[in-house]
Design a protein around this nucleic acid. Structure first.
Lengths: 334, 334
DNA sequence: CGCCCAAATGTTAACGTTGCCATTGTGCAA
DNA sequence: TTGCACAATGGCAACGTTAACATTTGGGCG
């Protein structure tokens, strides 16, 4: 067998097919100005040599990479898989690819994500924010590199997109109030979580908008354990007929905590979570929760970059509302 | 403000710094044969112009991309997030990037994953297999593109890596037998799952190796619901003191199913799962399960490609054993 | 029969980077 | 003074692709 040639280029194909390199290129792009017979001859040559277009040559020529970079501070996070699904789906749609980068969070800045990306073959970038980067206010995206942030916050220079956490809480609280509950207790989350804090605001402000002074919240840490403790604590509170937990794990923990104190769900206390992450885990009970469409968030981010072929940047801010999914854990007390 | 220049190249930097393009290049690579003063002058020019090396030009010249492609048939799968974490970590270590691609599974072949990748700027590729591709036996990786498959199967031309599912079952079964159980019942999974079937084999063969004829298994579908049904069915079987479920959701469902029939876990029946996916979800009980290190699997795959700088391919097959994590759901009946 | 148009194909140059070799300058030993 | 080694820098070409322009060919029409 002959030694493996470094790589097959248009030149090789052209020689074998007896045409010019340009004709090969035109054939690759299926230009109508190449005779069908010629095209077929070129295609045969490509097959024989195993030609595949070289990405580097192509993007050097075009000045474009058809690739969107995704920077994550930590990859293992709720919803990241669905977001990724969205990135990939949207990229596919536009003929783009996704380049993934983990950014070491020291320091936790947009600048470090940006400079990490700058050496990679990408036309634009998406940054998934979990916490508040130190330079959020002052950050400027690299020139020519459209940057989309996945966050609920607005930014003067970058488009942003996320789930609407405030509205999520509004939906839950109003859902419970409409069913006759006099107030809604809240199991919160660590204070550094942006989305968690926004949920907390939504809970508080919606109650106030209905003329109800929010009861004291219980701060959890996202784990079922903390929800369990909260459930036990609230079991003795006679005013507590409805509990809203900032995620499903805490909601489920809370249910078990209530039950451990002899309270029944939903007969005595109604419980609602957020995330729809329990899915297939709990067999005999469907938690009432809020489902977010993270895939859609991911698609929007990539669409914004890949769809904007030559279009002016245009900073936009987009929040997608979640959908309240009714389960078996809320009782109508009217 | 001046119009935005397309992009800043070495040429621009060279002109501003009053040196040749080559000297700029040497400065970028911190070559020792450039005088410190000159270097500083060049660096200043780079800063002033906002120069960043162009990936396309560079890889065209080098013939390398320093990027590993990852092809997934479906992104939302158990352990994918951890694998991704591993890909990213290993890539980072070698100065590589990760390019992610979703492959539409029609047809579900390695060939389609491979051709999808061939037009992207990658030096090698990883394919995450969930099911059996139609062309597994006949597939040949693209010349020059090292291909690693994430699967438990061996392949003549591609390195493969995965968790050791057979050993996982061996560990679970022996763990239960050592604690005095006379046999182990098994809740299985859909037959198209490669890893699930391998777990089934492990369960069956380990029992036989201990001279025990495996009882009839119950086929589940990965959901807690199916585990619940299985638990109810097994609750009436007096020979059943130990149940091994092919994932945690079914194991948990099974526990609830047993409890709904008045059986207590672990007092009456011991239950073990696989995945360690319940984690923070269930507050008042720690399921005995097997934890896999998917991050490590991901790292191995990328190491194999990125670490093999110029080294001969060398097909290898690697299985990482899981770790049995003791919880509260197994009782010693000796 | 000559002219012109359109279709089909070819030629050239440029995208940004860097390996190779050539050139210049400097200091030191013969 | 000459020769030589070595340090610092420059010039050139090539990587693979394709846009823009140039050329050839065939055919229709006056």
């Amino acid at each position: 067998m002959a030694a493996v040639k470094k790589s097959v280029s248009v030149k090789d194909v052209a020689r074998l097919a007896g045409v010019s390199e340009q004709t090969v290129s035109r054939t690759v792009h299926d230009s109508p100005s190449v005779r069908p017979e010629t095209k077929e001859r070129v295609r045969a040559a490509m097959r024989e040599l195993g030609y595949r277009p070289n990405f580097a040559g192509r993007s050097l020529r075009r000045g474009k990479f058809k690739t969107v970079g995704v920077a994550m501070f930590n990859i293992t996070g709720t919803g990241n898989l669905d977001r990724m699904e969205g990135f990939a789906a949207a990229a596919d749609k536009h003929g783009y690819a996704i380049t993934l980068t983990k950014v070491d969070g020291h320091p936790y800045t947009l600048e470090s994500a940006s400079s990490r990306m700058s050496a990679l073959p990408v036309d634009g970038m998406v940054v998934i924010m979990n916490r508040m980067p130190a330079d959020f206010g002052t950050f400027e995206p690299l020139p020519g590199m459209q940057t989309v942030l996945v966050t609920m916050l607005e930014h003067p220079l970058c488009s942003t997109v996320d789930n609407d956490q405030f509205d999520c809480s509004r939906q839950v609280v109003e859902y419970l109030l409409e069913r006759g509950h006099k107030t809604v207790h809240f199991i919160s989350c660590p204070e550094r979580s942006l989305s968690g804090m926004r949920r907390e605001e939504g809970w508080r402000e919606t109650l106030r908008a209905h003329g109800i002074e929010p009861p004291r919240l219980i701060r959890g840490d996202w784990t079922a354990q903390s929800g369990y403790a909260a459930g036990q604590a609230l079991a003795d509170d006679p005013t507590c007929t409805a509990i809203y937990a900032s995620n499903d794990a805490m909601a489920y923990g809370c249910i078990r905590g209530l039950e451990s104190r002899g309270k029944r769900v939903p007969e005595d206390v109604s419980v609602v979570g957020v995330d729809d992450s329990l899915g297939d885990i709990v067999p005999d009970r469907r938690l009432t929760t809020v489902r977010f469409d993270n895939k859609r968030v991911g698609m929007w981010a990539v669409d914004k970059i890949a769809g904007a072929e030559g279009v002016a940047p245009g900073v936009e801010h987009m929040l997608f509302p979640g959908v309240l999914v009714e389960g078996d854990t809320v009782r109508d007390v009217r």
